[in-house]
Design a protein around this nucleic acid. Structure first.
Lengths: 142, 142
DNA sequence: CGGGATCCGTACCGATACTG
DNA sequence: CAGTATCGGTACGGATCCCG
C-alpha cells in the first residue's frame, strides 16, 4: 500500500541465531501485500473467475469506491490481479486473480484455521486483560 | 493494535456464495493481530524461550522503545505473550510466547514460503507496472 | 460503468525526554 | 532495567464530488 518497496533492510548488526529476524522479515513481505483492510476480500472475490468492478463493489461489502480502486491498483501492481478492459460502449473492466494470488490464498488456509481455533481463546484473553488493566482516567471520581 | 475488537461485522446483505467473504473476514482476524510492523519479529524472538525487555530491544532491530512496549502490551492482551515480572532490585521482566503464539508462527510457514517463491516475480511485476504507469506530474517540464 | 481528485479524520509509528 | 508521556509526521481509509 505504501508505494515504497521497503525491503526488509535489516543491517544484521546483532546476533540473529538461525536468522530468526530474517524470517520475520520474509513473513512481513507477504503480510505487507495482504495486510490492507480489503486486499483479502478482493482477492477471494476475484479468485473464482473474472469479476467486474461493480460486482466487486457489491461483493466486498462495506468497501468504498475509492478503496476498491486503490486496492485493485496495488494488487495489480504486485501481479496478484490482472485487469482487462473491454472497449465496449458501457465500459467493462474485469479483474482476475493470477495463479500467484491463488497460491497466496491457499497459503492462508493454515492461518484461517488458526484464527478459527483460537477465536474464543483470544477474545477471552482480551476480556481478562481489560478486566485486570482498567484505563484509570485521572479525571474520574464522583 | 486498535484497542477495538472490530469483529468482522459483515451484515451478509448480498450473496456470498460459499461464504467467501466470511472466510476473508476470518483471515483478517488473524492478520489484524500480526499485521503490526513489529509483531512478528517480537513473537519470533520470544518463541524460543523467555526473553527480557532489553534483549528484545536488541534483537528486534530498529524498533523503538515505545513501539516495543506497545506491541508487547497488545500481544499480551491477545494472549500471545505472557509477561512475568521478577521482583528483584533491578527489575527483570520476561516475555514468553504462549503455545497459541507458536501455533500461529507455524501457520505462517506456508505464507513465508509463498513470499520466498514469488519474491522475484512480485518485484518484477512492480517494476513492469511502474514502467507502464508513470506518475505524470502536471507541474512538470521547464 | 469505472473510475479520478480532493478533503479530512484517525491510526500507526518514530524521536525524544522523563521516571520508579 | 523497564518502562511512561508527549509531540509530530505520515500512511491509511472514508465521504463526497466530478468525469469520459
Amino acid at each position: 500500500m505504501t508505494t515504497q518497496d521497503d525491503r526488509c533492510a535489516s543491517g544484521q548488526t546483532g546476533q540473529d541465531r538461525g536468522g530468526a529476524q530474517a524470517r520475520a522479515c520474509t513473513v512481513r513481505e507477504a503480510l505487507d501485500r495482504v495486510g490492507g483492510k480489503w486486499s483479502i476480500g478482493i482477492l477471494i472475490a476475484a479468485s473464482t473467475g473474472p469479476i467486474r468492478f461493480t460486482e466487486l463493489e457489491r461483493r466486498v461489502e462495506g468497501i468504498s469506491r475509492r478503496m476498491l480502486t486503490l486496492t485493485l491498483r496495488n494488487l495489480e501492481r504486485d501481479g496478484l490481479l490482472v485487469r482487462h478492459v473491454h472497449a465496449t460502449v458501457p465500459p467493462r473492466v474485469e479483474y482476475t486473480a493470477t495463479p500467484m494470488a491463488r497460491e497466496l490464498y491457499e497459503s492462508l488456509v493454515a492461518l484461517t484455521r488458526w484464527a478459527e481455533r483460537h477465536r474464543d481463546a483470544i477474545s477471552a484473553a482480551r476480556a481478562a486483560y481489560d478486566r485486570e488493566h482498567p484505563v484509570a482516567k485521572p479525571t474520574q471520581s464522583v
